[in-house]
Nucleic acid binder design. Structure first.
Lengths: 229, 229
DNA sequence: CCAAAAGTGTTTAGGGTACACCCATGT
DNA sequence: ACATGGGTGTACCCTAAACACTTTTGG
């Protein structure tokens, strides 16, 4: 069948907002843009959609290129398409955000782009409309975290309750009551207590927990998981 | 500056999901597709993004073409881009959803496309991936309505509490307690009681209310407005 | 023995839900 | 007078929030 006549065509790109958690703060992975214009400036990781891949697959490919990671939590956020957002030519960008275990990342670093993690409060000026994308993603992360246990995607297999609380405090940028938090976290029945303790950050040591994956996968979507509302 | 070399280019389209409320049910506006393939089949209203307009503007233009309405609540939902979603050629579709006052629409009907309103439970088979888009929009509407007073966009200037409740019942597809509902609706302080009554649907008559636009515009975004959670 | 972080219970207030009767009026 | 839908109030429960002390152990 003939192609649509008289229709303009444009490059379609993906940009990835990649969140990680280093144990005390949520961070964002940025790269140095690899080509002109604005070569060398801080940018989100991105790339053009290839001819045979879906948007989701394209985002996954781009994420893998940078981090080496597969099967990562990713979600489409929004598409940007202002006519002048890219000075080279009009380009549409479909923005994804990803949540990764920052420790797995560190093991598989490829640094062609000299990637770097930035704390949410110390994000530098970014090219084009990437700063807007990041702001939107931060807001989305908060909204989703309020209604679903999505933040577990940022944690390693084993983690402690204080680490978990710290993660929520970082995302919502406010202090949470230790007692109320741990009660809510444990009441969800998503956590399984392990025998061993994390001893690096206190003398007493904090018990490790892991996620009950079965319950996590079915339960995924209860309203207001840890009551950060 | 030179264009990006070696990058494939694609048509980018908008599809609009248009919700209305006729006083007893939420409905969706569909059209007959105007060209091949699948000419004449039920479809969302759509069109290609033009060269100088933003995505938001393009969606607004397309909505206006069909409904005659401007300054309508619209929001970008998600972008679809599976390689084979359109059999003619690969096309990306940025989906928007709009909430309109169905009465204003009826006044300005243009019917080149023989548009028709369908109750949410009676939506026919749609072309391409449009059914998926609609499902997604229905879900999104519920989520947003749970956390913000967005459904007022579907109502006329003057409306009664029973009408409002009926709207929520239609969106959430469940019966809501009359007493609890009206208490919550009124406690929000978004509603202003008017002197006159709607007398068509009962002998006693129900008082009209209108939205306090000032409070609506500032307040917009309180959590869980009418507690349908 | 002291510092530093982990862990744990109770009380209170507010919001959500369930539930039943009277009111106004057109016919 | 009666049928129809509009409008209101109360009791209970559950969840969220506030709040302080004991435990463990490395140094």
């Amino acid at each position: 069948m003939k192609k649509y006549p008289e229709v303009k065509r444009y490059p379609v790109a993906i940009d990835c907002i990649i969140f990680g958690f280093d144990g005390s703060e949520v961070k964002l992975l940025l790269i140095h843009r690899g080509f002109d214009p604005q070569k060398g400036k801080w940018s989100l990781m991105g790339g053009f959609v290839e001819d045979t891949e879906s948007l989701d697959n394209s985002a996954a490919r781009i994420l893998k290129n940078l981090t080496g990671l597969e099967n990562v939590y990713m979600e489409q956020l929004l598409t940007f398409g202002n006519p002048n957002r890219d000075p080279v030519e009009r380009t549409f960008s479909v923005v994804y955000f990803a949540l990764i275990d920052i420790h797995k990342y560190e093991a598989q670093l490829t640094d062609n782009y000299r990637p770097q993690w930035f704390a949410l409060k110390e994000i530098p000026k970014l090219i084009f409309d990437h700063s807007t994308m990041v702001d939107l993603a931060k807001e989305k992360l908060r909204v989703k975290a309020t209604h679903s246990p999505i933040l577990f995607e940022l944690l390693p297999e084993k983690f402690t309750i204080p680490q978990l609380r710290c993660l929520y405090e970082s995302v919502f940028d406010k202090a949470l009551d230790k007692r109320n938090f741990s009660r809510k976290a444990l009441s969800g029945e998503l956590l399984v207590k392990l025998k061993d303790k994390e001893k690096a950050s206190s003398k007493k040591g904090a018990f490790y927990f892991r996620l009950d994956k079965k319950k996590y996968n079915t339960h995924f979507n209860p309203a207001n998981v840890f009551g950060v509302s």
